[in-house]
Structure formats: structure tokens, C-alpha cells
Design a protein around this nucleic acid. Structure first.
Length: 273
DNA sequence: AAAACACCCTGCCTGC
DNA sequence: TGCAGGCAGGGTGTTT
């Protein structure tokens, strides 16, 4: 489900409810998550129980929870993950995999029906391979020069290029379609051939993500923020999910193609090969 | 080395 | 009303 704007929305809405709070206990469902891997229960308890949350950060699509001990917890929402701070009297949803018990009858809960998400505690979460391998953050670390150098080195279609988290961290299937439409670049264009449009692409990516953050993310079905609220960005989407509907720029029909099992939406008039 | 593919899961929607 | 099939915004490991 969640891409950079959704993860940013979760982080922002979660902060006031969890930062400064001391974790009393941790519950785990025991079921395996991403890639059928089991969570490291001992490490999670060692890190969290009795420790106070000092910060909640985002890196790409990962949520990083820091504790006063210096240790931390990495959370990835996968496709259907939710991380919410709620009253403990609220019934636990089906597929609740991790619960952190907080003071004043509150709980931080990780719920993930498809179990594509991930939760991991470590002494230094910034040094976990998942985090170290991430490319620059499109909102804070991306400049034209960096992207131009990356584009030069790749013959992959620009769509799969932008989806690769090692190059840029945070774009997913929705916002790639949106950003490419804004930049008027056809999704099948070879990355290196989009080089001349680097500046336009950087701006398009930023505008796309910033608008989605202002709207608190795109909620089709699953996505909610840190307190259970849906986002409003679905109505602001220009191409994603709009197959057959008129292009907001030229009026022509929005087209959809499928590659590697993933939909791509674009306007064949506005986005020429 | 880079790109394409299968796979990890459940839920929801469509069509019969 | 039931059931099969297809589809979904994630990442990873393996093959080509």
C-alpha cells in the first residue's frame, strides 16, 4: 500500500502520540512476515521493554522508531500494513502482529493482513542492510546532478528505474505513474534517454509527493495514518486508476498497461516515447 | 551487471 | 449464495 507520502503521513501523525512514551510490554502474534521470516522476538523485547521512544523517523518507505537507549525498531508496512496508536480498549483487529503497550491505556499496533510488512529491532537501525541499501530520499536528498548520473547508467525502462529503491527511496507504483505524467515522459522510455528531462523529472517527483503529503496520502482501501484516518489524495490523482477516463491535460483516454504484474497508467498523447 | 520473473500472503471484487 | 479466478499500492531471491 504505502509509498513515501503515506509513510510520511503515518510518521507525522504518530509522533505526538508515541514520542516520550515508555513501552511496558511487547506482544507478538508469532506469525512470519515478509518472505515468511519470523520476527526476532528477543531482540524486539530487549530493545523496547522499559525503553522510552525518543523519535519516529522515515527513510524511503521505512519507519524508524528510536529509543532513548540508542537502539531502535525498523517498520515496513508492505502492501497492507498499518501502524497506529490507539486506546487499548479498542478491539485488536484480525492480523495484529505486534503490539507495544504504552502508558495511559494506549497501544501502538502493527496490523498486516498480507504479511508483506516487516518489523525488526536492532542496536543500530540505520546500519541495517535494508536501510543502508536505500538510494537518496526524493524530498530531501535528491538533486538534478545525482539523478542525471543515475539515469546515464541505466537502459531500464524509466518506470522500473524509478521503482528501484536502491536508486531513489520512496516511489512506488502509484506515484511513479503520477510523476511520469507530470514530467510528460512515457513510462517505457529508456532511463538514459530521459536524461535531458532530468530537471523536469526532479520537479515532477517533488510536486507529486508533496501534493500527496498535503493530502495525507492515497487511501484506496487499506491505508490509514497513525491514528486511523484515511488520506484524501485519491481524488487528486491524475492518471493512476483512471483507465479510459479523460486526461486532465488533453482530454484523451488514459491508458493502462501491465508489466511484471503491475499496472502502469499514462496518457499516450501527453507522454510520447 | 542489469533486468525479468517467481514468490511471499489475505481480502475483495467480478463473473459464472 | 457459492465458488473460482484475477487483482492489489510491497520487497527479495533466483534466474537469464
Amino acid at each position: 500500500m504505502p509509498e513515501l507520502p503515506e509513510v510520511e503521513t503515518v510518521v507525522r501523525s504518530l509522533r505526538p502520540h508515541v514520542v516520550g512514551q515508555k513501552v511496558r510490554a511487547v506482544y507478538l502474534s508469532g506469525l512470519p512476515l515478509r518472505m515468511a521470516r519470523k520476527l526476532d522476538e528477543k531482540e524486539l523485547r530487549r530493545t523496547c521493554v522499559g525503553a522510552t521512544i525518543s523519535a519516529v523517523r522515515r527513510r524511503g518507505k521505512y519507519i524508524l522508531i528510536d529509543f532513548d537507549s540508542g537502539r531502535g525498531v525498523l517498520v515496513h508496512l508492505g502492501m497492507t500494513g498499518r501502524l497506529t496508536a490507539v486506546d487499548d480498549r479498542l478491539e485488536r483487529a484480525k492480523h495484529t502482529h505486534v503490539v507495544w503497550t504504552l502508558p495511559r491505556k494506549r497501544e501502538l499496533r502493527f496490523v498486516d493482513p498480507r504479511r508483506f510488512g516487516w518489523v525488526q529491532a536492532a542496536a543500530k537501525i540505520d546500519e541495517l542492510p535494508e536501510v543502508v541499501g536505500l538510494g537518496p530520499d526524493p524530498l530531501t536528498e535528491l538533486d538534478e546532478e545525482t539523478l542525471a548520473a543515475l539515469l546515464d547508467r541505466s537502459r531500464a525502462p524509466i518506470k522500473s528505474f524509478l521503482l528501484d529503491q536502491r536508486r531513489l527511496a520512496g516511489l512506488g507504483n502509484i506515484y511513479v505513474s503520477e510523476a511520469l505524467f507530470r514530467a510528460r515522459i512515457h513510462p517505457g522510455t529508456e532511463a538514459r534517454r530521459a536524461r535531458k528531462r532530468t530537471g523536469v523529472l526532479v520537479d515532477a517527483i517533488r510536486e507529486t509527493l508533496e501534493l500527496a503529503i498535503v493530502n495525507c496520502g492515497t487511501s484506496f482501501r487499506d491505508f490509514v495514518d497513525g491514528v486511523g484516518e484515511s488520506g484524501r489524495n485519491a481524488m487528486a490523482l491524475l492518471v493512476y486508476g483512471r483507465e479510459g477516463e479523460p486526461c486532465k491535460s488533453c482530454g484523451g483516454p488514459i491508458r493502462r498497461t501491465v508489466d511484471a504484474g503491475r499496472s502502469t497508467f499514462f496518457c499516450s498523447r501527453c507522454q510520447r516515447r
